[in-house]
Amino acid sequence: MDALKSAGRALIRSPSLAKQSWGGGGRHRKLPENWTDTRETLLEGMLFSLKYLGMTLVEQPKGEELSAAAIKRIVATAKASGKKLQKVTLKVSPRGIILTDNLTNQLIENVSIYRISYCTADKMHDKVFAYIAQSQHNQSLECHAFLCTKRKMAQAVTLTVAQAFKVAFEFWQVSKEEKEKRDKASQEGGDVLGARQDCTPPLKSLVATGNLLDLEETAKAPLSTVSANTTNMDEVPRPQALSGSSVVWELDDGLDEAFSRLAQSRTNPQVLDTGLTAQDMHYAQCLSPVDWDKPDSSGTEQDDLFSF
């Protein structure tokens, strides 16, 4: 819950932080000083300027060897085509990944977070970031790969997607708890209302004896509580940590079903599988986004697919 609360507080303090972009060759504004600060901008989305290598189908939802083989196929196909790589912007948030063309600003792909089953910074092609997700059109699994400016960037994108998945799962947990509370309150309110109706004398007997209905007592009954809980029953509950912020979080049926399955089948359902080692994760978390744009010590960066 700490990640969720800190993310909400950060967004309320400075929503404009989320509009910064990394990996864009110096076009961005001043960047936060450390990885923790940038992680807090996830709610509205972190932007990464990358190059799209392509996509291939895979048979399993996750796995280092599986993704490595898929990336190898994608890279080989991209090299064989001889075409310049498409420059894209990857927007990562707890909602998922939005992929747009840098030149036309046209939407290429919009992947809900619950469809993503794996992401990684490839070991062999260490400047490549990739994720595996279920197609929104059918049940097939797709591996999408992107060329980053350097290994640090690939690791940073991988960690960002993993963190977005974690925050999304926490949102789901909060929403589920809130819905259970509202359902319980609604049920209790309905029981109270039913009890009051059972003990209320029939209207005919009131008229016969000349008694008047006590409207004041009726007004004191917990009807307002019942209506408050039943009027918006169809509205999706939102985490309290975000009250007053500009973010509107809505959970669709697909996300609810997917996270429910994860909660039942996995020990740590909030953790998205990645190909990063503990050492890689520690190294990337210690980086400032400013470091992502620094040239690798191995030599001059080449803006070309064939540089790796």
Rank of each mutant, 00 (worst) to 15 (best):
T158W: 01
G210Y: 01
F259V: 02
G8T: 04
E301L: 03
A164S: 15
S224G: 02
T225C: 03
L223Q: 06
R27H: 03
F171P: 00
D296Y: 13
E301P: 06
S245C: 08
V58N: 15
S307V: 11
M46R: 10
G244A: 05
Q270G: 08
D101F: 10
Q270E: 00
P269N: 04
K184V: 08
T300L: 02
K179N: 05
D126R: 07
L53E: 13
F165C: 01
Q279E: 03
E178S: 15
A69V: 05
R27Q: 09
P222F: 04
A3Y: 07
S21P: 09
R13W: 14
S243M: 07
A130P: 04
Q279M: 14
H28W: 14
S224C: 08
I74L: 11
G210W: 10
L107N: 13
C119K: 14
K51N: 09
A18S: 05
L206Y: 06
Q302G: 04
L305V: 04
V75Q: 09
Q155I: 05
R73D: 13
T89L: 09
E109A: 08
R39I: 08
K51S: 12
H28M: 15
V167T: 00
T277Q: 07
E142K: 11
L276K: 07
Q197Y: 06
V247S: 05
Q136M: 13
A164L: 03
A7L: 02
H28R: 05
R266A: 00
P239E: 07
V58F: 08
C119E: 04
Y131D: 11
C148S: 15
E301M: 13
H144T: 09
A241R: 14
A156R: 15
G45I: 11
R196F: 03
W22M: 12
L305H: 09
E257P: 04
H125G: 14
D122G: 05
L90I: 13
T56Q: 10
H125M: 07
P239W: 03
A10K: 12
S81P: 12
L50H: 05
L206Q: 07
I116Y: 06
L53P: 12
S297Y: 00
T230A: 05
E235K: 06
D273N: 09
L43M: 14
P15H: 04
D101W: 08
D126P: 02
V248K: 01
R151Q: 04
T120P: 11
N105F: 07
S6P: 10
E180M: 05
Y118P: 15
N105L: 02
W249I: 06
F259L: 02
D291H: 05
P295W: 06
L213I: 05
A195K: 13
G299P: 07
L251D: 09
D304L: 10
D253G: 11
T38A: 14
A168F: 02
L251R: 09
S288W: 08
W172S: 01
T225G: 09
L276H: 04
T200Y: 06
V226C: 09
H282W: 02
Q270I: 08
R29E: 11
T231N: 15
L90T: 08
T104K: 04
G63M: 12
T218E: 07
